[in-house]
Design a protein around this nucleic acid. Structure first.
Lengths: 193, 193
DNA sequence: CAATAGCATTGACCAAAGTCAATGTTTTTT
DNA sequence: AAAAAACATTGACTTTGGTCAATGCTATTG
């Protein structure tokens, strides 16, 4: 249990066996069926979830009821409404499962305790967040500076698994587009070759 | 010297006088005249810059030579090409001064040394990056889910100083728009009231 | 395995943002 | 203070993406 999580952790900060055992006492496993929610908007987000298996998405819903996907998480990724998690304010995102999934949960209490008691946890978390920040900055740059066609190509190049496993209309949502538009872009790319 | 930086640091992680003195030995002050570069694309980004005074911007340049602003930094903000800074790869952004500015630089060597020698520095950095991540996630959410008019209103509400101090065509660039489009949105908002 | 719901594609039309060009204003520079 | 540069606005037109509606395909699921 927790294989992938611990593997991920060790690849960033090497743990001793005792430390591994110690961390494990703070983790909670959780299975989620396809379409089940991990968090709903207006709840307070009580944990960060590491994906051992499966796929989740975080999305917001606008005034006219449209969903906008802001993040996907496949195996090895962490997903949460970090703002809500850290501040205790209500979540602004919904997170649900796109496939039957297995998660490792870190609760707020666990997070805070680990930060205090295990310096390596803080290092791990710092590296994680820094990586997430850089990845998101790239995404943002691509949004404001690349034409759509490029953006879609980049996405498939960077995250081929996401594009394969996730329905196309969700990819469209993630890119801030209508499904019809993405369909047309794909056709355009296909006919060019 | 370093007043604002240390104040900012202390507001996140309280330092003793000795620790303050210790950190100061790692800092370098730097003045930048308007239009001067802190980093140019293809350089390796050698520091993180905290703004004591003035205003900077980070931007990328696309194939057809258009500039796309991805971040502004006013007093109290930190700016860098974090990816390049951490990996040693060439920068993908240019950073330059919008006004005469005073900066506090933290070099790569200083950053690494501080992470090892002063746990509070790691905590400070973690909190900083986490905050930056959350802010950017909000910006991204707003881009993919709000109509333009809302986005401009949000921006002026959230960062009134930026909108005041920075030329409008740069705000447009930051929003991923043409200057003409932003001008029209502003007129639309103005006539509505 | 039949029925249903979810999904992708296409077409016709509309709305929004981009482009190009001209004009007037403000800010900088000399 | 004059000249030049940078900036903001507006209009006419084009391009791009959104909307609505119809069709056929593909997975679920009962």
């Amino acid at each position: 249990m927790y294989e992938l999580f611990l593997h991920n952790f060790n690849s960033k900060v090497k743990l001793t066996e005792e430390e591994e055992a110690f961390i494990k006492t703070y983790l909670t496993p959780k299975k989620l069926r396809k379409k089940q929610y991990l968090i709903q908007e207006t709840d307070v987000c009580k944990f960060m979830a590491f994906v051992e298996k499966g796929a989740l998405r975080a999305y917001s819903v606008d005034e006219i009821g449209k969903e906008h996907i802001i993040q996907f998480a496949l195996e090895g990724w962490t997903i949460s409404d970090l703002y809500s998690f850290l501040t205790g304010e209500p979540a602004t995102y919904n997170i649900d499962a796109l496939e039957d999934s297995e998660l490792v949960l870190i609760s707020k209490a666990a997070h805070e305790d680990l930060l205090l008691k295990l310096p390596k946890y803080e290092t791990y978390f710092r590296i994680q967040v820094t990586g997430a920040y850089i990845a998101m900055q790239k995404r943002l740059t691509s949004i404001i500076s690349s034409p759509l066609e490029e953006r879609y190509k980049n996405l498939t190049a960077l995250y081929p698994t996401i594009v394969e496993r996730v329905p196309q209309h969700m990819i469209a949502s993630y890119m801030g587009l209508q499904p019809e538009t993405l369909s047309r872009i794909r056709r355009k790319i296909a006919t060019k070759k």
